[in-house]
Design a protein around this nucleic acid. Structure first.
Length: 416
DNA sequence: GTGACGCCAGTGCGCTGCTT
DNA sequence: AAGCAGCGCACTGGCGTCAC
């Protein structure tokens, strides 16, 4: 039986959360302090009118989705409680739940019995305030990224239609060891999901193609699942995670560890705490550029929407405004077209984060005073014309909402 | 006459990219 | 790595103009 909880996270009521926390407190032995802290956080941060706060355009709402850490954490906690509750309904079966997707194996049941059980499960969820869709009497099911086939007792990888895998490009700005591990990691995952080598080979084409697209030459190979190693006690490790950048030639990790050796030698009383066995280095990757641009655009577009209208020009004689009544606008790319008798029109393009007027005043200063002749290429050219005695005229054009040097307060576009 | 405002000159500094 | 040039920003103080 395959079931799916509709709108899982937004449907969790505070009562259900409290029940699940009470249950986990009983079974997982969490302390009173931990319990109180969780309840306080959940109440004050995540709930509003006995419902979780859901991501909306309204900035006053708390931004939590099931994909986020808190949302997933809650769903997992509640999920465990639900599984426990379902034991009363589904007694003689294997049942599992991953966030909002559930699967139960119904053994030795007729179609009618299985369908009755399906109805009971739906009622059980309804009693908890959750709505589900459930299908029973299935011989083949797609659950998460696996297809289970009861007819042949096999399983193999599953992907939704048109959901082609995309991997980090081989020439991407990532630590080499991460890029190196990608084909191996995929091989391992697909092997785990495959019943045998044959189903692995059938499924691996799509992944091999995705690897080619991302610049990898490696071909996925079937590996038999490793036996679980006996768990060893984990060493307490202090991690140093510098951000990785391809253009940095210095081996930061090596230099860092050398500093550890130098400043905490075996004779140092702190050597026990700070040494190569207790301090490890692992490069961290910076956020995806697409995500950065998207979040940036959201921010600046919201600011632009909320900004009150401001004065655009304060020139004493409005007709003399160099940019047609828009001299006070800030964040502009401007263009100066210089016409003279000696040559064709010459253009200079500049930009400023402040007001155009302020920048223009500095340009005028450099035109008047030879001391600032070399301030810009534009001023150099003007002084050249002045020395030649060539008459000239300057026409200024500016474009709104352009970048400043320090930040880009305008929407960006990701180049394909 | 006074205050507000616009304009200008001047200074110092930060950032980036290039050269040595 | 250091130095330099180019470009732009932030800020200050002085002066002229205008409205009241």
């Amino acid at each position: 039986m395959l079931f799916d909880i509709a709108e899982f996270y937004p449907s969790i009521s505070e009562d259900l959360l409290k029940q699940s926390l009470d249950w986990s407190r009983q079974y997982c032995e969490i302390s009173q302090l931990e319990y109180n802290t969780i309840m306080h956080c959940r109440k004050s941060l995540l709930f509003h009118n006995n419902r979780p706060w859901v991501k909306k355009d309204n900035p006053s709402t708390f931004d939590v989705t099931m994909g986020s850490f808190d949302g997933a954490e809650i769903c997992e906690n509640v999920g465990l409680f639900i599984l426990h509750t379902l034991r009363k309904t589904v007694t003689s079966s294997d049942i599992g739940l991953y966030r909002d997707d559930g699967l139960a194996v119904l053994k030795n049941m007729t179609g009618r019995t299985a369908d009755n059980l399906r109805k009971k499960v739906i009622s059980a969820f309804n009693a908890l305030g959750l709505k589900i869709t459930a299908e029973s009497n299935l011989k083949v099911v797609n659950f998460l990224d696996v297809t289970f086939d009861l007819r042949s007792s096999s399983h193999y990888p599953y992907r939704k239609p048109n959901d082609d895998p995309v991997y980090v490009h081989k020439s991407s700005n990532h630590p080499p060891q991460i890029l190196k591990q990608i084909p191996t990691a995929i091989s391992k995952r697909i092997s785990q999901l495959s019943h045998n080598e044959e189903s692995f080979n059938t499924a691996s084409h799509i992944y091999n193609n995705a690897l080619r697209v991302s610049g990898y030459n490696e071909t996925l190979t079937y590996t038999t699942p490793e036996k679980k190693r006996k768990r060893k006690r984990a060493r307490k490790i202090i991690w140093f995670n510098p951000p990785f950048c391809k253009s940095v030639k210095t081996n930061v990790a090596k230099a860092f560890l050398r500093l550890i050796d130098k400043h905490f030698p075996p004779t140092n009383p702190l050597h026990k705490i700070f040494n190569r066995n207790t301090i490890k280095v692992s490069y961290s990757c910076l956020p995806n550029v697409r995500n950065l641009i998207q979040s940036h655009n959201r921010k600046v577009l919201r600011q632009a929407r909320d900004q009150p209208e401001t004065q655009l020009c304060n020139c004493r004689i409005r007709n003399d405004c160099p940019v047609q009544g828009l001299c006070l606008t800030s964040r502009v790319v401007y263009q100066a077209d210089i016409s003279s008798a000696s040559s064709d029109v010459v253009s200079y393009i500049g930009m400023t984060g402040g007001s155009f007027k302020n920048r223009y005043a500095n340009h005028k200063k450099s035109f008047r005073n030879s001391k600032y002749e070399k301030e810009t290429e534009l001023s150099k050219y003007i002084w050249q014309l002045k020395r030649q005695g060539t008459p000239y005229s300057i026409k200024m054009v500016h474009h709104l909402n352009a970048p400043s040097r320090s930040c880009h307060p305008f929407p960006l576009q990701l180049m394909s």
